[in-house]
Design a protein around this nucleic acid. Structure first.
Lengths: 199, 199
DNA sequence: ACGAGACTAACACAGCTGTGCTAAAACGGA
DNA sequence: TCCGTTTTAGCACAGCTGTGTTAGTCTCGT
């Protein structure tokens, strides 16, 4: 039998090399050869794991969403409901270098996915993450509602969408102008928004 | 004397061809030749107006922001303050096909600009638009405040940032999932948010 | 040890890339 | 009419692009 290399791990390694290239030079520079160089292998090796580069792109985009999902499921839902809510939101926002990089990459993928609108595989990944995030917001608002903390007259569905939009908007601002929209400021705004929903 | 072609107009025409390419096939496909074909000229003609393609990219991105600025300044500030506020927000959101296209293109440019972080010319354009939009939000909240309509206890600065984040978040959602986040829904959410700020 | 299967590297190919360059066409004033 | 300038098209070049193919290397169960 051959030498055994974990196929899945190797694919992820290559996808992460693609991330670094996209983050550094933009998606325009993400070619098989540049990615291979970044990963430290030959182009042939990369093509062994990914026969065509559309597959690579798609896998790399999907990997981002899987990483985010992992991070979210790793959060332990302990403490008061509002503090749990804030912890989840905190985990989704690009407030440290690693997640800022992740967001930049996600932004590049989204933009590319918008081009292949409809038919493309990439757009499906956008939808998946988008829906996951909306579902997260929904469950957070629902949690507040179930705990009887939600202010009277607030509509759960509406507050879900507002929270979701605020979340993505703040994420964008934190990524685009990190020196102005600092992590501290983002957390503060998020906390104040959640507090404005409470009784 | 030579034949006279309006240089500025021609440059805008070419930039718009670039927009269509970016929108249709993504920024990866935006080469001098594809743009020339889209515009209906030879590659040489395009290169006459834009010696290098970085200049073209930069000009095209800048043109987006100039168009948005034009649209905003064209709004007449008549009527009640809240209705004026909503009209401005309405004009900035991608709620029709043309502005959705514009947003997709802007998204692609932003993603590219994030790559050349710091040094690049593109990032400066991102900042410009971002600051313009924040300034718009600030003046809208200030208008509400000056009219004495703002609810007691609300901080102008904080509500500016919240509105700005909500605006960009909703814009993203309207672009990414237009069938779910319909124009009607976006307008409704925006209206309700503004109402939540009123006394 | 050895050979089957997993893995790697390298080449070829046609086509595209940005950019430099040149020749010609289009045009308006004289 | 014709000259001088602006505008256009096209070529050349070196280098990169995705993808096919092929020959090789490595590893491990037998």
């Amino acid at each position: 039998m051959p030498k055994i290399v974990d196929h899945a791990t190797r694919r992820e390694e290559i996808a992460e090399a693609l991330w670094r290239v996209v983050r550094r030079d933009g998606i325009r520079s993400a070619s098989v050869r540049t990615i291979a160089a970044e990963a430290g292998w030959s182009a042939g090796a990369v093509r062994y794991y990914f026969p065509d580069q559309d597959g690579l792109l798609s896998f790399a985009m999907d990997l981002v969403s899987r990483r985010v999902t992992e991070r979210i499921s790793a959060i332990d839902a302990k403490g008061s409901v509002p503090s749990i809510v804030l912890r989840y939101l905190d985990e989704v926002l690009p407030l440290d270098e690693e997640r800022r990089a992740e967001f930049d990459i996600w932004l590049a993928f989204m933009a590319q996915a918008q081009a292949e609108t409809g038919a493309g595989t990439l757009h499906a990944h956008t939808d998946t993450v988008h829906n996951q995030l909306r579902e997260l917001c929904a469950s957070l608002v629902r949690a507040l509602s179930d705990a009887g903390l939600l202010k009277d007259g607030l509509d759960v569905r509406r507050e879900t969408e507002r929270l979701h939009a605020l979340l993505d908007g703040l994420a964008l601002h934190a990524a685009i102008q990190p020196e102005r929209t600092t992590p501290t400021r983002v957390r503060q705004l998020m906390r104040q928004h959640v507090e404005s929903l409470l009784e």
